[in-house]
Amino acid sequence: MRGVPVGAPVTVGPAAHDGTTIAFRPDAGIFETTACSFAVLAERFRQVAFLNRELVISLTDERPADGPRVVRFRFPDGVRDFVAALEVEAGAGLGPDVIGFEREDPRMAGAMEVALAWGGLSGVRVRGFVNSRRTPEGGTHVDGFRDGVTAAITSYAPGLAPSRVDELLTAVVSVKLAQPEFLGATRGLLGNTEVRVCVAEAVREHLCAWFEAHPERAAEVVRRIGRGGEPD
């Protein structure tokens, strides 16, 4: 532990707002860099705002000589907005719809929020998150998502090869768990076995219901997958 307190906490009077303010200077003996990157912080705060729809985050950088830089993040549609942003950033036009849902499931002691779209660029862009933290190696939540999508699509279009189901797919799979279990030292791979079953079931049920309610758009999704995004 480094540093010593300059004094004991003292009461200075009533506060105008609730909350806690922490001020500190990074210790060069601990941190690789002591300069905060506005771009890095802004991107992380933006991501957190996508994953928590009720959250509003403001970031102010008072260092610029020509005045403070301020950004504010709020995304009322949560991960649906996240998927739409990923599609735009990838240069793809949105597919027929951004499809999304939320569900709590006591079997995994948590909740899930999922959104997906079949866009216009080849490849697969699926991002997984656990408690608002990225899991770059995936895990049972991402595996369950793929299981559910495959089951729904192949049920709707039996002639479609399962290997093509996630072609053109952009998705965000976010789970909030009371007791997440990670595999490996980097916490980049979720290991909770019950999560796979719960997410797969929810995705399959929601997509099957969406296909039934929107047959014309569902047919367009299948056509896009079948032709790999190439024009008719």
Rank of each mutant, 00 (worst) to 15 (best):
V222K: 00
R204T: 08
A178I: 04
Y156E: 10
T135Q: 01
P231Y: 01
E201D: 13
E181T: 09
D77M: 06
G91I: 09
R107H: 10
V12Q: 07
A185D: 14
D166E: 14
R53V: 05
R227Q: 13
V149M: 14
D81F: 08
F145Y: 15
A161I: 04
A213I: 00
I153N: 01
T34F: 05
A65P: 03
V71F: 09
V114R: 01
G128K: 02
G188R: 08
T193N: 05
V221K: 00
T140W: 01
T33W: 01
V195I: 13
S37V: 10
A157W: 05
F82D: 15
R127N: 04
G100K: 02
V70M: 10
P76S: 11
A161H: 08
A157H: 02
F211A: 03
R107M: 06
G159W: 09
D77S: 11
G100H: 15
W118C: 00
F101L: 10
E216Y: 09
A109M: 14
R127D: 02
A171D: 09
V114C: 01
Y156G: 05
V222I: 14
E62Q: 13
I57F: 09
A161F: 06
L51N: 12
F50K: 01
R63N: 15
S174T: 06
T193D: 14
A111Q: 11
R2W: 08
D81V: 04
V165M: 07
A49F: 05
H17Y: 12
R196I: 12
A213K: 07
N192Q: 04
R69L: 13
G229K: 06
V40D: 15
T135L: 04
A49L: 04
R107P: 00
V56W: 14
R224K: 06
L207N: 06
R223Q: 13
E43Q: 13
N131Y: 04
Q179G: 04
T193M: 10
E137A: 15
G110V: 08
R72I: 07
K176P: 00
A152K: 02
V142L: 10
T11S: 15
E194W: 02
A39W: 02
R74L: 05
T11Y: 15
R125C: 06
E43R: 13
E167Q: 10
L41D: 06
R204D: 13
R44M: 02
A42Y: 02
G3Y: 09
R164E: 12
G123K: 12
G188K: 11
V70G: 02
G128V: 02
V221P: 00
L41G: 05
R224S: 03
V124A: 09
R72Y: 03
I30S: 08
L86W: 00
V79K: 04
A185Y: 10
V172S: 05
A35M: 07
R227F: 04
A152L: 08
E167P: 00
T154L: 07
I30N: 06
P9V: 08
D166P: 01
T21M: 10
P96L: 07
K176M: 05
C36N: 01
V124M: 07
G7K: 12
R25S: 15
V165Y: 03
Q179C: 00
L168I: 03
H17A: 14
G228W: 11
A28Y: 12
R223L: 12
A185R: 13
A152Q: 06
G148Q: 06
P68M: 07
G191H: 12
A178P: 02
L51E: 11
T170S: 14
H141C: 07
W210T: 00
C208M: 09
A28T: 14
D61W: 04
E194G: 01
V83Q: 10
L183R: 11
